Simulated assay, not measured.
Amino acid sequence: MGSNAAENGFKTICEIGEERIRLVGKNIKAQIDKENEQLELGAEPKPYPDLGFRVLRIDSSNFKDFYLTPGETAQESLFDFADNVKEGRSDLDLLFEVLPKLGIPYSAKIEERMLAGRKVFFVDGDKLAACFDANVGSDTIEEMAKAKPWYAVIRDSSMADDATHANYEELFRTYSPDTVPQVI
């Protein structure tokens, strides 16, 4: 004999909590809709509060383990180390691994902006600018620097060429000297 929750398809306490939050959100939305039905002349409708939520799960690091001694590494396997991110990991996976390392809470607002044709995540206003796209050029990095974030993070394998890699920190020194740029 199962519990009422199990009979309704819930497998974990977390799933029950998620559904309760969704139901509360629907109730708040319905209540605001009802209040906005009969507005006085010239009155502004009441806006909806943020009704969203994030569900995170703990997983292993997004980065491959490369702790090998020179004797354990063969010349022909060096290309295996060109990308340090595990297969199947998304940009958001990388972003959420970086947040606690920079002291930014998981609840911080995340905004996606396109800078010079590349997706850049801006977190908690301009506290963090992070780009994990491929072929990121100096033009994107310059735009990131002009936003003057506290921190900037880019994936090593994201940089389009050696010149971009060489100029990464210099662009931040030029446009935003207080930014702490990092390469992951």
Rank of each mutant, 00 (worst) to 15 (best):
N167Q: 08
S61K: 04
V180R: 06
N62R: 10
Q31N: 09
K34A: 13
A108V: 11
F121K: 08
V24Y: 12
N84D: 04
A82M: 11
E112Q: 15
Q75K: 09
E112D: 10
M114E: 11
D93G: 05
G52Q: 13
L102Y: 12
D124C: 05
G9D: 13
G125K: 15
V153H: 00
A160E: 02
P149S: 06
L95H: 01
Y48F: 14
D50E: 00
R57L: 09
G71V: 08
H165F: 05
F81E: 09
S107K: 04
L115Q: 06
P105N: 08
D178F: 07
N135V: 08
Q75C: 12
D161C: 11
K127G: 11
E169Y: 02
A82L: 02
A116F: 00
A152R: 05
N135H: 07
H165L: 03
G42Y: 12
I104Y: 04
E97R: 05
L78K: 00
Y151Q: 04
K101C: 06
F172I: 05
T69C: 06
D178I: 04
F10T: 15
G9V: 13
E97M: 01
A108P: 13
P177I: 06
L92W: 02
F121P: 07
Q182V: 03
F96P: 01
P45G: 01
F122Q: 15
N84R: 05
D83G: 10
K127F: 09
K109F: 14
N4D: 10
A134S: 13
L78E: 04
Y48M: 12
R57Q: 14
K46R: 11
F81L: 13
S3C: 05
G25P: 10
S77F: 04
A74F: 06
D161P: 07
G88E: 09
G117T: 11
D93T: 08
E37L: 13
D133F: 03
Y106G: 13
N36C: 12
I28S: 02
D65V: 00
A152K: 10
D80K: 14
I13H: 03
L23W: 07
E97Q: 07
T140C: 15
R20G: 02
K46P: 01
K11W: 02
T140M: 08
E142P: 04
P149W: 01
E18C: 08
F81C: 07
G42T: 02
A147W: 00
P105G: 03
P100C: 11
R89L: 10
Q38G: 13
E111K: 11
R20T: 12
D91S: 12
D83T: 12
G42E: 12
G2D: 12
K46Q: 10
D33Q: 15
Q31W: 15
F63D: 03
A163Q: 02
A43F: 07
G17S: 08
I28T: 08
G17I: 10
I28L: 15
E35I: 15
A108C: 08
T174I: 09
F96E: 03
E72K: 04
G125P: 13
A166T: 02
T69P: 12
K148S: 09
I110H: 00
L41N: 10
A147C: 06
P45W: 09
E76M: 14
G103S: 06
L51K: 09
G88I: 00
E7Q: 15
R20D: 12
V85T: 06
K64Q: 14
S157M: 05
N8G: 08
K29D: 15
A134Y: 07
G17C: 13
E35T: 09
K26W: 10
E76T: 07
K109T: 10
K109S: 13
L23Q: 10
